[in-house]
Computed example of a mutant assay.
Amino acid sequence: MASLNPGRSRTRQAPIPTAAELERRLLAGETLLAESPTHLLEVVGVLESYGEVLDAYSINLVYQAEKQFLNPLPIFKFLDGDPSLARIWRHLNHDRINFEYAEYCQKAMFWHGTGGLDAYLDTDAFRQGCAAIIRCKTRRDPLLGLLHPLFPDFLIELIRSAATTHALGQFWRVMSDLFLDLARAERDGRVGSIAQLVDFLMDGLVAAAAQPITYAVEVAGQRFWVLPPEAALTFLVDVAVPYVEAVFLRGMPFLGTVSFNAQAQQISPDQSRFAYGALYADPLPTMGAGIPPSLLMQDMYRHLPEPLHHWYRQQGRGEGDVRVKICASFQKAMFCVTNAAIKGTFPHPLHSTDEQQLQANRAYAAAWVERLSHARTDCLSDESAAEDGSRS
Rank of each mutant, 00 (worst) to 15 (best):
L40R: 11
P74K: 01
L182P: 02
G115D: 13
G7N: 14
N339D: 05
A56V: 10
H348E: 12
E319T: 12
T234W: 00
L233C: 06
R323E: 08
E42S: 05
A328W: 06
A163M: 01
C136E: 15
T257G: 07
L205P: 00
L372P: 14
L47S: 09
T114C: 12
S392W: 08
E387H: 08
R187S: 05
L182E: 11
C105K: 06
C336I: 09
G256Q: 03
G316N: 12
A34S: 14
V324D: 02
Y50S: 13
F76S: 02
Q356F: 03
D124K: 09
G169H: 15
F179V: 15
S329H: 13
M109C: 10
D124F: 04
D321H: 01
L40E: 09
H166T: 02
L205I: 08
R173L: 12
A363M: 05
T257F: 04
S58Y: 11
Q170D: 14
L358P: 04
A289C: 07
L201P: 01
P253L: 09
L40S: 13
L41E: 00
L236F: 11
A108T: 15
P142M: 00
L150Q: 11
R273S: 10
G113K: 08
E383I: 10
S58W: 12
V53I: 13
Y63E: 10
L158A: 03
K325W: 00
R25D: 06
A386T: 13
L304R: 07
T345W: 00
R317L: 15
P37W: 01
L308I: 12
A278R: 14
V247Y: 04
S373F: 01
P6R: 14
T11R: 05
